[in-house]
Design a protein around this nucleic acid. Structure first.
Length: 591
RNA sequence: GCUCCCGUAGCUCAGGGGAUAGAGCAACGGUUUCCUAAACUGUAGACGGAGGUUCGAAUCCUUCCGGGAGCGCCA
């Protein structure tokens, strides 16, 4: 058997990557430097190579001839890798891999911790800005996408070797805090703390707002309190800290239940930039960017217009001398570039903010704070809709509370489990209900293209068929079940390294899919689109069940086949678990 | 009015220059002495319209039609 093809000791288990690598010199020889072989997975072969068509076009030659020239050079290079190279259609090459090659690549991937996924060529410092709830407000369904998508991106980027810094840009500053602090003093600290720790942040906020709207003297107190807060009055800051602490306790309860990585160490609220806002203004001024407009200090980035078709400014300081979130976001860019020394900043924030961030990034570029290769990306996303195709609301019309959403998910999952698998020990059931319920919510969110709105549907996300978390988790459970039946440790199969025999179409298909984990992860990272990983995992689960139905494992015809299939099972389980893990979803051993 | 995002099967979604556009639900069939049928499997069904670029377009460009969002001192 041929040794796995590897380069520089780095992981190269993905056949598409390996073959692309091998064909690079062949295409360079025929089409010149930079000719891309364009190797892709294919429905009608193990892989297809499309690059000959592009060369033919550039050289003005017949595609067929170019393809033949490629084949002539490629055959020796791909000896042992491909059992067949066929020219098809206008000039595609259809590749069929040898079983030996696939087995060797898969053995190589299975031997690795990262299951064949390539490490990032350059390790970057990446900031992922996500979740960003508001202090003294209940987290609601509007925070679902940013939290879940951001967390998955953190896991993915970490997995391939980047240094990832999580930043939770909580809304802990601004004019509402005057009214909130005054309401706090009215209630009395102890009473307020008690009521807030029960988790009724919205009630507190609404009471404060109602008082503010109805009572002029309260308004005056609130305004005065804002000034005290901004001037750093010690007592006011103490009360403010109290509000922040009570709120973050609530955030953490949600994060805990949701199973995301965010902790108090990741808090980077708006308030931390407060001391640097005048600096932003000065630096904009010395860069010659600052202009006066209607009494405000503004910057006019090119390419933005307002309703009247006039240039649209980014307002750095308003006409009464106040700063706003544009100023704060600019200070934030400076901080991330100059203090944190980030190479890449991901802002996981909803699509409605697209123009705001485009303007902030543009101004930061103009001021020279944001320069290549440092990059800021607005990872935007659409809304979560209800059955009526409007933004998801609770029965009362308020935004759906995040914590209630999660409780309902766990509750529904628990009911389903009790029904489908009543034999499960009660102690285990609660834990599994959480894995299934939370997984379902996260997967429903991650599995559609983030840019689009999606319709929130309990029945669909908790269904055990289709592109859902439970379906993927079930595939994993079935594998665990096989090993449990056989009373075998999964690790022992791995260590004994039995030869992989890919005799059936289902085994080959499964092996090919397992080897594509690398491409799937990188494709997901390149586009910051977790749904691509979801699609891959769903395909993997389907390939696995095809294998499961057609290829008996414990009752295989002979011992060698059994061991080979056990290794396929183990590797599948590991990829499923790792893949779900990258989405922040647990893979229980039974359900 | 301007700008951005989205229109793929009855429904919910993939595919974002390559061959015959993939799934899942729902519909109508078939499969359990067998590792969890929470599964597998067969049939039927689609690129909003019109132009253009290209050897090749669901994919890129223009335009129109539909849906959503944003457009100066809130965040």
């Amino acid at each position: 058997m041929q040794a796995p093809i590897r380069h520089n000791g780095s992981s190269m288990a993905d056949p598409v990557v390996t073959v692309s690598d091998l064909l690079q010199p062949v295409f360079a020889a025929i089409g010149g430097d930079g000719s891309d072989p364009v190797v892709r997975p294919s429905d009608r072969a193990d892989a297809q190579v499309n690059g000959a068509l592009a060369i033919a076009k550039r050289l003005g030659q017949s595609p067929r001839q170019v393809a033949e020239a490629v084949v002539a050079l490629a055959e020796p290079v791909l000896a042992g890798v491909c059992s067949g190279i066929e020219i098809a259609g206008p000039g595609f090459l259809n590749l069929t891999f040898t079983n030996e090659f696939l087995a060797a690549q898969l053995a190589s991937a299975a031997a690795e911790e990262r299951l064949g996924v390539r490490e990032a060529p350059v390790s970057k410092r990446v900031i992922v800005d996500y979740s960003a709830p508001n202090v003294a407000k209940e987290m609601h369904v509007g925070h679902l996408r940013t939290t879940v998508i951001g967390d998955s991106l953190v896991r993915l980027l970490t997995f391939v070797g980047h240094t990832v810094i999580r930043e939770n840009h909580i809304g802990d500053w601004g004019t509402p805090f005057g009214m909130l602090i005054e309401h706090l003093t009215d209630l009395g600290e102890d009473h307020a703390a008690a009521s807030l720790s029960v988790g009724d942040l919205d009630g507190f906020y609404k009471q404060a707002r109602a008082k503010f709207d109805a009572d002029e003297t309260f308004q005056d107190r609130a305004r005065a309190r804002v000034v005290m807060l901004q001037s750093g009055d010690a007592e006011t800051l103490r009360l403010w800290h109290l509000l922040v602490a009570l709120s973050t306790k609530h955030f953490n309860a949600v994060y805990d239940k949701l199973g995301v990585l965010l902790t108090d160490d990741d808090l980077a609220g708006e308030s931390i930039y407060n001391g640097r806002l005048t600096e932003v203004l000065e630096r904009l001024k010395s860069a010659g960017l600052l202009e006066q407009s209607d009494g405000a200090d503004v910057v006019f980035p090119p390419g933005f217009t307002n309703r009247e078709g006039e240039p649209l400014p980014l307002i750095a300081r308003n006409s009464v001398g106040g700063f706003n979130y544009s100023t704060s976001d600019l200070a934030c860019v400076i901080d991330r570039v100059e203090r944190v020394r980030a190479d890449l900043m991901l802002y996981v924030v909803g699509a409605p903010q697209a123009q705001h961030f485009a303007m902030v990034f543009k101004v930061a570029e103009m001021a020279g704070w944001l320069q290549p290769p440092t990059e800021a990306v607005h990872v935007m996303f659409g809304n979560v809709l209800g059955a009526d195709r409007k933004i998801l609301k609770s029965r009362s019309g308020d935004p759906l509370k995040f914590i209630e959403l999660l409780d309902e998910a766990i509750d529904r999952a628990g009911t389903a489990i009790a029904e489908k698998n009543p034999d499960l020990p009660a102690a285990e059931r609660a834990e599994i209900a959480e894995a299934i319920g939370i997984g379902a919510v996260k997967y429903a969110d991650l599995s559609t293209d983030r840019i689009k709105d999606y319709v929130f549907d309990w029945d669909r996300m908790l269904a055990f068929d289709g592109n859902t978390a439970p379906y993927l988790q079930y595939a994993h459970v079935r594998i665990c079940s096989i090993f449990r039946r056989a009373d075998l440790q999964r690790g022992s199969i791995r260590e004994s390294q039995p030869p992989l025999l890919l005799a059936t179409p289902q085994e080959r298909a499964l092996a090919l899919r397992l080897l594509a984990f690398d491409s799937a992860v990188w494709d997901t990272i390149d586009k910051y689109s977790p749904h691509r990983l979801c699609t891959y995992l769903f395909d993997l689960a389907q390939d696995f069940t095809g294998f499961f139905e057609n290829c008996p494992v414990l009752k295989a015809a002979d011992e060698a086949t059994k061991l080979s299939r056990l290794l396929l099972c183990d590797t599948t389980a590991r990829v499923l678990e790792a893949g779900l893990g990258l989405l922040g979803i647990a893979a229980p051993e039974r359900m």
